[in-house]
Design a protein around this nucleic acid. Structure first.
Lengths: 201, 201
DNA sequence: TTGAAAAAAGAACGATCGTTCGTTAAATGA
DNA sequence: TCATTTAACGAACGATCGTTCTTTTTTCAA
């Protein structure tokens, strides 16, 4: 790893931190350079442009999400076990993202949803992949015989995601710090129970 | 209505439009003044400061939400009818907020969640009120005899909100434009069915 | 119609933004 | 060790940011 690559990694790490707290729009080449004890132009040379920096930071967020949420879950056997692991990991990711401040991907989604361009396209494509992954896992659970054969896997995925989004919201809003997780797990178990095969699992 | 009041109303309307598209952070006194064919200083005199402008625009968003989502629903009789009306209105609000670009309140929540201050406090307080309103309506539905007596109204409210959040997300992400509403209504009917009194309604 | 009050304009401020350029310092491979 | 590539710096740019003044125009009531 050359010096340049090392510096770039430091930049993306610091950028991810800022993005968690203030979103992609909160990124500033000047303040980022200050944080890293670099000159503005020195940092600029590494990233090429503000837009490229935003994209690189977003990609770093994706990589982290895969590493923390998806990959460990896919190591589990079977659809249900993987779905449960994803739920756990996702909740933890939401409660404690790479850096304090909230999920950077979720923040980017709200920042880019009305700013057409390649960054938005890439982000939406990634979200569709995510949808697809969850649907595939639900189908797998059906094939495993753990979920009902007539389960609407799209609806299941929608409801699955809904719980996590509401969890993220409740964490910000509700006064009782234990409530969000309790509510999210309550909703999740109901969802799983409703999806279960009649014979139970 | 004096001239000043009229101009201020125009400012807030235009500000709300910008906030829907780019969030509160996207507000700029300069560009806002340009849009309204005003001078920067002329507009500034009306709002006092950037922060005050953000707060005023956020308040305008709240007022609009009450007007479009809450008030019409509270005109209905009984807890269930009001919950159904709120769901319908909220979905429509999410799909077509005052101006194109997404719910300004939701966007503000993500912008302010890590920026302590009176604006954040007011926003969170409003969200708690909203939670409280939904819980109260669910209790009302229990009292009406339409919902199960042992219903966990907090869990119901959590699940209720979850569906709308997932709807907002799906609208941005999913390719099929009809899918989000279909999924949201599917989830909602399941939720209502599970909450219903055994005797049915 | 006149005169006070309110509204809007205009110019300038310090700061920060992303970006470009030319130059210096450091790392790297032969 | 030396030559060359790479990394980082420093200064400056035009633009925009929120804000503060002073001045001009408009509104509105007596």
């Amino acid at each position: 790893m050359s010096k340049g690559e090392k510096t770039r990694a430091r930049i993306l790490e610091a950028g991810l931190k800022v993005a968690c707290r203030d979103g992609l729009g909160g990124l500033s080449i000047g303040t980022l350079a200050n944080d890293l004890a670099l000159s503005k132009s020195g940092l600029f040379a590494h990233v090429g442009s503000k837009e490229a920096l935003e994209e690189a930071v977003l990609k770093a967020a994706f990589d982290r999400f895969v590493e923390r949420v998806i990959a460990p879950a896919l190591a589990r056997p079977g659809g249900v076990a993987r779905l449960r692991a994803i739920f756990d990991n996702w909740l933890e990711w939401t409660a404690a993202p790479p850096f304090p401040g909230g999920c950077p991907i979720f923040a980017a989604l709200h920042e880019l949803d009305d700013r057409p361009g390649p960054a938005r396209d890439r982000l939406i494509a990634a979200q569709r992949d995510w949808y697809g992954t969850l649907i595939r896992l639900a189908k797998r659970a059906v094939d495993d015989g753990d979920f009902r054969a007539d389960l609407d896997t799209r609806q299941f995925t929608f409801d699955f995601q809904a719980i996590v989004f509401a969890f993220a919201h409740a964490r910000i809003v509700l006064a009782d710090p234990a409530a969000p997780e309790r509510l999210a797990r309550g909703g999740f178990e109901s969802l799983m129970a409703a999806a279960r095969n009649a014979r139970g699992i």
